[in-house]
Simulated scan of single mutants.
Amino acid sequence: MIKRLVLLLAITLSIACASKKTRVSFSNQAELLDQKGWKIDTLRKDVIWYKFSSSTDREFAGQNVNVVSFNPKAKLGNAVLAYKKEKDSLSVFAGRISGAIAGINATYFIEKKDSADYMHLRLKGKDIQQVKVPKTSIYWWKHQGMMTFNDEGTAFEIKFSPTDFSKVKASNIITGAPMLIDNFKPVGLTFADTAGLQLDLKKLHYEHYLKHQGVRHPRTAIAVTKEGKLLLITVDGRNPKAKGMSAKELTLFLARYFNPKSAMNIDGGGSTMMWIKGEVPNGIVNYPTDNKKFDHYGQRMVETALFIK
C-alpha cells in the first residue's frame, strides 16, 4: 500500500512538472498566433527569435521575415538606441554595445543633405535632430509616427507624432513612417494603398509616399504588444527568394501573426538588417541588398541602430 502511494505521488509530481514546463514554453511563444511556417529560437528567456519562410502560404509565400521579441518585464535586459553621425554597418555597431544579443537598423538618415530635417531624434533628453520640413514637402510623411521610451530601455510606446515635439515629455524619441498599427487598428492598410489607382508609380519621385510605401521593398519595423513587449522586425526583398512587402502587406502580416498594439515602419530598403549574437558569418541573419547578392554581406552604413542587451 505504501509503495503504491509513493509511486502515485511520484507520477503526480512528474505530470505536474511536465505541465509546468509546457506552460513556460507556451508563454514564450504565445505571442505568435500561428506557428506554421515559423522557426523559433530562444536567445534568452526574455528574447525570442522568430524566423518565417514559406513557399505555400496563400498571403505570404516567397517572403523571408525575422522577428525578435523582447520582454522587459522579465527584468533580464534592456533596449539601447545607438547613434553615430559618421555611420557604420550594423555588425560594427553591435561590437560597441556590450552584452548585445540582437539588433536592427533604426530610423531614416539624419545626416543627409536633402532629408536632415524630416526626422526627430531625441536621446536622453537631448534633441539631436528636429523636424523642420513643411507639410508641402515631399518628405511630409516620413515622421508620421514615433516611438518613445524611457532611459532604462524597458518601457516603449508607438503612436502618431504630434505637430510640436517640444510638448512630448519622453526622454527618448525616434520617428519613422508610416504608422502600421495604432491601438490595434491597422492604419497601414490605407496609407499607401495603390489598388485601383490609374497611376504610373515609376514616374513618381522616389520619396513620394505612394511609390515609397505602396510597392514591395525590404522593410524594417518595430512594434509593441499589449503586454509591453518590443518586437524588432525585418522583411527581406528585391530577390526571387524574398519578394519584400508594401506597407499594406506588412500591416497584414503583423496583424495576422502577432496582433501588436502598435507598429511603425522605419528605414528599410538597403538599410534593412538584423544582427543576432553568435550567428555566422558576421551576425547578420537577414539578406541585406546593397551588394545585390542574396547573402549576409551587403550591409549598408547607417547612423542609428536598436539593440537588445
Rank of each mutant, 00 (worst) to 15 (best):
T163Q: 13
Y209R: 09
R238D: 06
L121R: 02
T194D: 05
D164I: 05
L197K: 14
T194M: 04
I138Y: 04
E227L: 07
W140A: 13
V224D: 04
L232C: 06
Q129D: 12
Q213I: 04
K229R: 12
Q129Y: 13
N239P: 03
V168E: 11
K142S: 14
A242T: 09
L199E: 09
H208Q: 14
F160Q: 09
Q129H: 14
G244I: 09
K241R: 15
S166A: 14
N239K: 08
R122I: 03
K203P: 00
V187E: 04
D182T: 09
Y209T: 08
V168S: 06
M147H: 03
L204M: 10
S137A: 03
T225W: 11
F184V: 09
Q144F: 12
D193W: 04
K203E: 10
G188Y: 00
H120M: 11
T175S: 10
M146Q: 10
S161L: 04
G196L: 07
P218W: 04
N150E: 10
L123W: 04
V131Q: 09
Q144S: 14
Y206K: 13
F191G: 00
K229G: 01
L123E: 06
K243R: 15
I128K: 07
L204E: 05
G196E: 02
L199G: 11
I138A: 03
L189C: 02
K159W: 02
D164K: 08
V224I: 11
H205D: 15
A223M: 07
D200S: 12
T148W: 08
L197E: 07
H120L: 09
W140F: 15
P186G: 10
G237S: 13
H143W: 14
P240Y: 12
F191E: 07
P134G: 02
W141R: 10
I233C: 07
E152W: 06
G153R: 03
A221F: 05
V131E: 08
A192C: 06
H205K: 11
V187Y: 05
E207L: 13
E152Q: 15
D151Y: 10
P218K: 08
A192S: 10
V224A: 03
F156V: 05
L232T: 02
S166Q: 12
Q130P: 11
D151E: 15
H205E: 12
K226E: 15
F191Q: 04
N172L: 04
S161T: 06
D182K: 09
L231H: 09
Q129T: 13
N183K: 15
G188D: 01
F149K: 01
N183R: 15
T163L: 14
D193C: 07
Y118V: 11
F160L: 11
K167T: 15
